[in-house]
Design a protein around this nucleic acid. Structure first.
Lengths: 193, 193
DNA sequence: TGAATAAGAGACGCAAGGTCTCTTGTGGGG
DNA sequence: CCCCACAAGAGACCTTGCGTCTCTTATTCA
């Protein structure tokens, strides 16, 4: 019964972050308590507070720990439309697992994590658009930032402000009705007239 | 000293909502406490809980009480660009007074107020676009909903996810680079090339 | 092998949401 | 005109959960 195996350093930290992540999935951000995380990790609260100053920081660290690696790669489907759809789909998938409460909770408790959320997006979109311009799909890759981020920002807005699961057409609408026209792809293509 | 004037009914309710609103402006949503609202209104917590089941509902009621009337009228500046800019400016002004914490807090505590936020917007935008089509500024008023709400949704997204005060160019960018091109206004006008 | 460090465990203080109870002013109905 | 049911005002109280403090004990490093 007595474990007498005391974890330390990176191994312990990883266990703590895993516990936090599991609590997040099980209870959501609003119901995640430090006590529960500590209990799940078979330790005390002090071990958590030794590493992260508060609940929000712990959760942010847990998210980075779990999802940090997936963000890097840029989809490459061969077409601008496919690439942007893939990005949106990935956002939607990631969001579906956690729900909007997480973002709202974090942003209302730890205001300084805002940049974290939107930061890497512009790099991804820029890479996609550059490739599309090389391919000749669009006349120029020099899009205003507001256009470049319009689809991802609109999707994020929708996911944050709507409780229902988003219907499949939402993503294609964002790409076909908003982004592609603005990017100047296929001047003759204007669907849903 | 002794007031011995006991408020009742609508008068009392209005005083409660005013107190809540003042607390909101002074402390923000996160730091607004029921105790403080009750104290400011010179009453007890029970009077609050007799009317609203929780903090979030009280705050929503306070917002409706204060801002309910302003939303109705649709700006009419004579041009589509001016109208949309006026709508965005109004959103920005209203938001500036309260900050993003309010929305995040409400949405993480009282998930069922989401529709409240975006509901009336589509009606306003639709009216503006209809007038612009009658004027001949745009070929058709039959825009996809995602286009119709793109500028307001993008602005809301920005205000929610960014802490800094938004720079003046943000609004014009949304109108000139995103909305007007999508609405088909002035096919030759493609600024910021 | 011994001393410094940090893990594990849990008590504690405190703020705030929300409930309960009690007294007392007040307006409406008899 | 008076009485009484209702709700205002006041505050004690319970609970949850964050964050701190303390204490013992395992582990690691010199």
């Amino acid at each position: 019964m007595d474990q007498t195996q005391r974890r330390r350093g990176a191994a312990l930290e990883s266990a703590l972050l895993d516990a936090a992540w599991d609590e997040l999935l099980e209870s959501g951000y609003a119901r995640l308590t430090m006590e529960a995380v500590a209990a799940r990790a078979q330790t005390g609260k002090q071990v958590l507070y030794r590493r992260w100053p508060n609940r929000a920081e712990l959760v942010v660290a847990a998210m980075r720990h779990r999802t940090g690696s997936i963000v890097q790669d840029v989809p490459d489907t061969g077409s601008l439309r496919g690439d942007v759809l893939a990005v949106l789909q990935r956002m939607a998938d990631r969001f579906a697992a956690l729900g909007p409460d997480l973002i709202h909770g974090l942003l209302s408790e730890a205001p300084d994590v805002s940049p974290e959320i939107t930061s890497r997006m512009s790099g991804v979109m820029l890479a996609i658009v550059l490739r599309a311009a090389e391919r000749g799909e669009i006349p120029s890759a020099a899009l205003p930032l507001s256009v470049l981020l319009a689809p991802t920002n609109l999707l994020r807005h929708q996911m944050l402000l709507t409780r229902e699961a988003l219907e499949p057409a939402t993503l294609t609408t964002l790409v076909d009705d908003v982004f592609l026209p603005l990017a100047g792809a296929g001047a003759q293509a204007t669907p849903t007239s």
